[in-house]
Every structure is written in C-alpha cells, then in structure tokens.
Simulated scan of single mutants.
Amino acid sequence: MNIRLDTMQGFNKDGLDATMKSFGAVSQSVQAIAAEAVDYSKKSFEQGTQVLEKILGAKSLDTALELQSDYLKASYESFIAQSNRMSELYADLAKEIYKPFEGFVGKMPTVPFAGQQASS
C-alpha cells in the first residue's frame, strides 16, 4: 500500500506547528496561574499575621472575637474571589491549548489515502 507522503507530511507539519503553539500557550498560562497562586498565598499569609497580632493585642475577649469574625468574613470573600479568578485562568488555559488546533480537523481529507487502490 502506497501512502501519499506529500499529504501526510503536510498534516504532520501542521500538527507539529499546532502542538508547539499549544505548548507555548500552556507554558505562559501555567506561569500566570502559578504567579496568581503565589500572590494570593502571600497576601493571605500577611493578612492572617496582621489579624493575629491585633487579636493578641486586644484588650477584651469581645474585641478579639470581633476581629476574628471580621477576618473570617474577609478571608472567605477573598477566597471566593480568588477561586473565581483561578477558574477564569484555567478556562483561558483550556481555550489557549485548543486554539492552534481550530480548523485543523476541517483540513483533513474525508478519505485519508484518496487516489490509492486497496491491495487485494
């Protein structure tokens, strides 16, 4: 069976180009996700440390409980906002991974080895 190499080479080149673009997008997106996670962790740790210092310096139990309650509310809201941000980053990552492959399937022939005769 003879394979049309010119057709196969074109698909291989297009596929390789799309794959390389996809890897580049993955690299950039993963770096953005990692930077976002590090930034959030740093801010969260700093806020927690500040609140702990305030709680330890509180003059009354009521003040300490109020500080803790306010921190928990703010922390929860910050976590939800960060979760939404990370979801957006991961959705963007998925889009960027597949963007180079758009239209690639449409270029494939309906009969991969057109013009070839089946060997008996």
Rank of each mutant, 00 (worst) to 15 (best):
Phe23His: 12
Ser27Glu: 06
Asp17Asn: 14
Ala37Phe: 05
Ser22Leu: 05
Gln28Trp: 01
Gln47Ser: 15
Met20Thr: 12
Met20Gly: 05
Val26Asp: 02
Ala34His: 15
Ala34Ile: 09
Lys42Cys: 13
Val38Phe: 03
Ala37Trp: 02
Gly24Arg: 15
Thr49Asn: 07
Gly15Ile: 04
Ala18Ile: 05
Ala32Ile: 02
Lys54Asp: 08
Asp39Trp: 04
Glu36His: 03
Glu53Asn: 14
Ile55Gln: 00
Ala37Tyr: 04
Leu56Trp: 03
Gly48Thr: 11
Ala25Glu: 05
Ser29Pro: 01
Ile33Phe: 00
Gly24Asn: 14
Lys54Pro: 02
Gly24Ala: 13
Tyr40Thr: 06
Tyr40His: 12
Asn12Arg: 14
Phe23Asp: 05
Ser44Met: 13
Gly48Asp: 08
Lys21Gly: 05
Ala25Asn: 13
Gly24Phe: 04
Ala37Leu: 03
Asp14Cys: 10
Ala32Pro: 00
Leu52Lys: 15
Gly15Asp: 04
Gln47Pro: 10
Thr49Met: 12
Val38Gly: 02
Glu53Phe: 06
Gly15Cys: 02
Lys21Ala: 04
Lys43Gln: 10
Ala37Asn: 07
Ser27Asn: 11
Glu53Met: 07
Ser29Asn: 11
Phe45Pro: 04
Leu16Trp: 15
Gly15Trp: 06
Lys43Leu: 12
Phe45Met: 11
Gln31Pro: 01
Lys42His: 13
Val26Trp: 02
Val26Glu: 01
Ala35Trp: 14
Lys54Val: 00
Val26Asn: 04
Gly24Ile: 02
Gln50Asp: 10
Ser22Asp: 12
Gly48Cys: 05
Thr19Ala: 08
Ala32Thr: 09
Ile33Lys: 01
Gln50Ala: 04
Gly57Cys: 09
Lys13Cys: 06
Thr19Cys: 06
Ser29Thr: 01
Glu46Tyr: 03
Ser41Val: 00
Val38Thr: 10
Asp17Ile: 10
Lys21Cys: 05
Ala34Ser: 13
Lys43Cys: 06
Ala32Met: 09
Val30Glu: 10
Lys54Cys: 01
Ala18His: 07
Gln50Pro: 02
Ser27Phe: 06
Gln31Cys: 02
Gly24Met: 08
Gln50Met: 07
Asp17Gln: 12
Glu36Ala: 03
Glu46His: 00
Ser27Ile: 04
Tyr40Ala: 12
Ala32Gln: 10
Ala34Cys: 09
Ser27Tyr: 01
Gln31His: 10
Asp17Met: 12
Thr49Arg: 12
Ser41Asn: 08
Ser41Phe: 02
Ala32His: 02
Gln31Ser: 06
Met20Ala: 12
